[in-house]
Design a binder for these strands. Structure first.
Length: 110
DNA sequence: ACGATGACAAACA
DNA sequence: TTGTTTGCCATCG
């Protein structure tokens, strides 16, 4: 099932996210060339459970730095993972989000 | 095989 | 200014 185009692209970008950094769905979508597909990026994260190797979806948050999909991880797993990366998460929101924000279009310097 | 849905974000009124 | 509507692609029923 890999090679599903958009999904596979999203998975690769997400796997490139360095530890201690986070990115947003819109940033990935924009990097792929269409910010309109931000929704598909988010959904790709949901299907990431079937992707091989698994993607660090816990490093992907929405534009507000809010852990929208933490519920899909199974409780507070997402917060624990982010905390383990050194990212402080309070009230399902990433602190210093702007500082640890990892934009592929910028960091990868395409 | 078809219809509805789903981890978002930006544009329009 | 806030609230609502549209765009996107794959998976589930």
């Amino acid at each position: 099932m890999p090679q599903n185009n958009f999904y596979d692209d999203v998975y690769q970008v997400v796997r490139l996210i360095p530890s201690g950094r986070v990115t947003s769905y819109g940033a990935i979508a924009a990097y792929l060339g269409s910010k309109q597909s931000s929704r598909v990026v988010g959904y790709a994260m949901m299907a990431c459970g079937t992707a091989q190797p698994p993607v660090p979806a816990h490093r992907v948050v929405n534009r507000q730095g809010l852990l929208t999909g933490k519920f899909h991880f199974g409780g507070d797993t997402m917060e624990q993972l982010l905390a383990h990366e050194g990212i402080k998460v309070i009230d399902n929101q990433v602190q210093n989000f702007k500082e640890i924000f990892w934009d592929p279009a910028t960091e990868l310097n395409l």
